[in-house]
Design a protein around this nucleic acid. Structure first.
Lengths: 347, 347
DNA sequence: TTGTATGCGTTATCAA
DNA sequence: TTGATAACGCATACAA
């Protein structure tokens, strides 16, 4: 009945290699780690051969114990199903893998209790560094990691002072969006965005307000909702029900924008004809909605490599690095289709 | 300039706890692990106190080394950005976390080279079990894990014989979709799906063909493409360009379906009026397309808990478990809107 | 250039 | 019920 093949044998150890090569374990270690002592070419050859024939692989638990480092990076985030976070995780994973680190996920689902326990779990696992990709809801979370592990927070919105920080320039991104809509001649521009925990500032909103203000427009058409498609749907409906509905909507995230579009479709409103939409994030999903969404894209890769590098260097005593976002013009804003608005994708 | 707070101190060890409690390390270990020896209530109390005051947490590298188990589960998958995989990872992570396991991701991007090296990396990390959530492209991958670690493959399509297997009943799911479309009176039903590596069988196609055949219809309107939105877009265009275009399309995945919808919109075709669509997967994205997609949903949670349990039990010498899929009716199939077709979401 | 020997923090055996 | 102690596999200080 056994479908699973042979018996599991004990994997070979340094000892085994040393024995076969006729050297001490120290020498094998020197060969594997290129130091800290040199090895005669001939011996090195023998050791390499032994490693090869035995199929030796270093035991990473033993290494971690001895070196006091796991080469594991913890990532604290709300929810991997959210494409925005998924995109970040992918980029972070790439950046980490390129440096021989692996990533350990901890999802909070915006639940303070879970946030704290998942963080504790990460710490218990002996992560070498922590990447925070969420607003923190539990005060204890701020201090829990503090003295244990270097950490980097990817976001400029919340209490950035507490952590070294690498992140998108949300304000500049929002300004890009608002300016573009104004360039299309809109004067009643709505904003549908998600709620933030108390005390946090949404720089998207600040950017949007400042541009509108700069053009003598009042920034009153705001709906705060969930950070989800359903939230966007609801927020848009409320906006459309106002006495002075907007002619353009700036959505705080791609997910929200998708919900906004559904609300428009449902009311038989044409986008961008009746109402223009600009989105925020730049996930692939925004490209395949109907119409394809004009959006402001996070510099996922740049942020991720910067964050991982900061973490690995261990030198988190560093100036905040806020990286610029980029406007991606597609069709929901009212720009003429350029012919390549669709049918391209990452993979 | 120091933003990072105090100095990092050496975390307390078993020794420290033992010293403070005035017992041996063995006793502390007995307390922590509830065995294998008993401890007098009074002593246990003292130990617990010491643990509390020192804030002691077991070092997991040392544990892993000593116990020969990491409580880590490796997941091999193509790409976390794909919402289908993201949904699975979320469910797997939940199932694992509930059992005190963590998940280590390894993304292959469908690249055989990367597939093999990521798998090796997982194995090097000492994972206790392997979950395979992809078609394997590198023959070595099949054997690499074989004798090292229990593994479970989540898919019934490929060489299931090589691994214990837990997965969705793709064939039954496809039959659900095809039957439903036929129920709407369609006779020219197209199928847009992704390509599989050589030797693999797509049970979706088998299900679709069998239902069509059972109704005396020929199953010739097939387009094989990429497993992506862009692929769906292309596949649909090719299908529409045929001499006998379909009046209904069955999409092999939600991503493909979204691309199909975009192709329809672009040609000014109404869905479901001109062409009905049924999708496959049941990710949240399918709910917020326009129109909301009727889709066949994977039993993500059931599969995930079954897979994780099988892995942890270590008894992978078990019959394949194929779990049924479920039809979720929304609007793209031509069914009348039921009023709740939109505006609901997981989170 | 190589070998010996110690300790990283746990667990669990064996003796007391 | 408790304590001493020997591994687990590796990295390195120190000696040769």
């Amino acid at each position: 009945m056994s479908r699973q093949g042979r018996v599991r044998r004990r994997p070979p150890t340094l000892q085994d290699v040393a024995r076969l090569a006729g050297v001490s374990t120290a020498v094998v270690s020197y060969v594997i780690n290129d130091g800290p002592r040199g090895v005669a070419p001939a011996t090195r050859e023998r050791v390499l051969d032994a490693i090869e024939t035995l199929g030796y692989r270093p035991n990473s638990s033993a290494r971690a114990l001895r070196r006091g480092a796991t080469h594991l990076i913890g990532v604290l985030l709300p929810d991997i199903v959210n494409p925005f976070h998924a995109e970040f995780v992918a980029a972070l994973d790439n950046a980490a893998a390129a440096r021989q680190y692996s990533i350990l996920l901890a999802t909070t689902h915006h639940d303070p209790e879970r946030e704290y326990s998942m963080l504790a779990n990460l710490l218990d696992r002996g992560i070498d560094g922590l990447l925070i990709l969420t607003y923190l809801y539990d005060r204890r979370s701020y201090t829990a990691a503090a003295d244990r592990v270097p950490r980097v927070m990817i976001d400029e919105s919340s209490m950035g002072r507490l952590s070294p920080l690498v992140g998108p320039d949300l304000r500049q991104g929002a300004e890009l969006a608002a300016s573009h809509l104004i360039g299309h001649g809109h004067t009643r521009i709505g904003f549908v965005t998600g709620a933030l925990p108390g005390g946090s500032v949404d720089f998207r909103r600040i950017g949007w307000e400042s541009v509108l203000g700069g053009h003598g427009l009042t920034a009153s058409l705001v709906e705060t909702t969930e950070w989800s498609r359903a939230g966007g749907y609801e927020g848009a409906r409320r906006l459309l029900d106002r006495a002075d509905p907007p002619t353009a909507i700036f959505a705080g995230s791609d997910l929200i924008a998708v919900g906004v579009l559904q609300a428009l479709h449902e009311r038989g409103l044409d986008c961008p004809g009746d109402i223009a939409v600009i989105s925020f994030d730049g996930t692939t999903e925004s490209q395949f909605s109907w119409p394809p969404l004009t959006t402001v894209r996070h510099p996922f890769e740049a942020i991720s490599t910067a964050a991982v590098d900061t973490l690995i260097s261990g030198d988190t005593d560093v100036e905040p690095r806020i990286l610029p976002m980029e406007l991606i013009v597609r069709q929901s804003c009212g720009c003429p289709p350029s012919g390549d608005g669709s049918a391209r994708e990452g993979t």
